[in-house]
Design a binder for these strands. Structure first.
Length: 315
DNA sequence: AAAGTCTTCAACCGCCGGCGA
DNA sequence: CTCGCCGGCGGTTGAAGACTT
């Protein structure tokens, strides 16, 4: 038996809502609540189907909706949650207070997805599209890692001995969160947040030495991408603290991801180090899109590659 | 200035699962 | 157990504005 339509479409209005319709819906819900969406439009004097009313309310009129641009933290959360949850927009939205699934879905499709594609990352699998771009080649990970006795992570992150970071930690964080996605099917995404609701993970205090992210996983997998293991670690570990931006935009990195030289954690902070300026003269500056909103320029796609890592052939 | 193209996002569509009769 | 209703979800559409030629 065929399903009955959600409502009798005859005589019901479709398309954009007028301010008058919005006000009717708001007034009705504020007075009566929204018990039955099917009967609500009739009771509220609206020539709309219940579905349309529910959508309008949940996606636009709800008082707790946060309008405006997505913050960097929100974008970060979306990317990480998407790597775990896939296109479960409602589940992602549940962890981003004030944002609707529709809004997140739109933002993903119009902004994040395109950025990932431009970066040579498959937005579905969150894996590098090696047919287009070999990220490990750009980073010089494998060969360089093998040739030197030095921990590549240390060098890239500038984690020890006053070595300058070679790559902005932002891009490393994005890449590693993406690279760590294959386990996502078997993971409970709730490890990311407390009490099944999005909470911004605690910011690291602006101290010289921060608590390292817990590492109880003895089976750290390190494959082609040398940071893969340490970041899958925090994803696999229910006790792990989600790496997050510090106030100075540097990411606390687990100590096992780089050697401090003496095995001690040595998180970077502005007070303890001098990160290379983004506009350093002797580096190649990449900004993937000049058409993105300039007022909100995510550092995710802004990073510098030192000259000795010649990437011009990829540009 | 006009036409064509691209981008954005609100809204719609159809399907699915839960629930009660 | 089956059926129908309802709310919710993810994919898609298309109007409007922005941008390019």
């Amino acid at each position: 038996m065929g399903r009955a339509p959600c409502c009798d479409k005859n005589g019901l209005k479709k398309g954009p809502w007028t301010p008058e319709e919005d006000q009717k819906l708001i007034d009705y819900i504020q007075t009566h609540g929204y018990g039955n969406w099917r009967t609500l439009p009739k009771n509220a004097g609206l020539q709309r189907c219940g579905k349309s009313c529910r959508l309008r309310w949940t996606n636009y009129l709800r008082p707790d909706i946060k309008r405006g641009r997505f913050s960097f933290e929100e974008e970060e959360a979306i990317i990480q949650l998407h790597s775990v949850l896939g296109n479960k927009w409602s589940a992602i939205a549940a962890r981003l207070p004030g944002r609707t699934d529709n809004e997140i879905k739109n933002y993903w499709n119009t902004h994040i997805r395109k950025r990932l594609l431009r970066m040579g990352i498959d937005p579905v699998t969150h894996s590098p599209r090696l047919d287009l771009l070999d990220l490990s080649s750009i980073l010089g990970c494998c060969s360089f890692y093998n040739q030197s006795q030095m921990n590549m992570s240390t060098r890239l992150l500038g984690g020890g001995g006053g070595v300058q970071p070679l790559v902005n930690p932002e891009i490393l964080r994005l890449a590693t969160s993406i690279m760590s996605s294959p386990q996502r099917e078997n993971q409970n995404p709730d490890f990311l947040f407390h009490e099944n609701q999005y909470q911004q993970p605690p910011l690291m205090q602006n101290t010289n030495v921060a608590e390292p992210v817990m590492n109880n996983n003895p089976n750290v997998i390190i494959d082609q991408f040398p940071f893969n293991g340490c970041f899958t670690d925090w994803q696999n570990n229910a006790n792990a603290v989600l790496p997050y931006l510090t106030e100075d935009n540097y990411v606390p990195v687990p100590s096992n991801c780089y050697g401090g030289g003496n095995g001690e954690p040595s998180f970077r902070t502005p007070s303890s180090s001098s990160p290379t300026p983004l506009n350093s003269n002797n580096s190649t500056y990449i900004n993937s899109s000049s058409t993105e909103d300039e007022s909100y320029s995510s550092d995710i796609l802004k990073f510098e590659i030192p000259d000795f890592l010649d990437v011009n052939e990829f540009m």
